[in-house]
Amino acid sequence: MQRQYETIFILSPTLSKGEQGQMIEKVLSLLKEKKASIVAQEDWGLKKLAYPIQKKDTGVYHLIRFLAAPNILADLNIFYRRNSSFIRFNTVLMDKHAIAYHSRKKKEEKETSTSSTHEKPLVKSTEP
């Protein structure tokens, strides 16, 4: 029985861009290995923390929404805890209100992005 989860984690800022990508790839591969299907991803990048964690004031936030069987959570938490570059992580079950909210938000983003592409071709045609 697949349920929708939303996991968000903070990577320590000392990692280079490449290492951050690797970490995110590791989480994604762990999810795919456990037959989870990724619904959406959000990369907030480097953000200032409200309070220092492990003497660090900034962190790289990344968020993944996925559909999975509940037994995946134990492996996910072990993976997070075992890896020191994850300074903070949190996985939340999404109830129907949350799912409705995020699907509505995605639709709005799609509308705004499609409407903006219409203007671009007009500019091209005016060139001599």
């Binding site: 968000i8 903070i10 923390l49 409200a50 309070y51 964690i53 962190g59 936030y61 903070r88 949190n90 939340v92």
Partner: peptide, 13 residues
């Protein structure tokens, strides 16, 4: 409480 845990909001400001 979740936002505080994720350092999006301070525990004490």
């Amino acid at each position: 409480k979740i936002a505080r845990h994720l350092a999006l909001m301070p525990y004490v400001s």
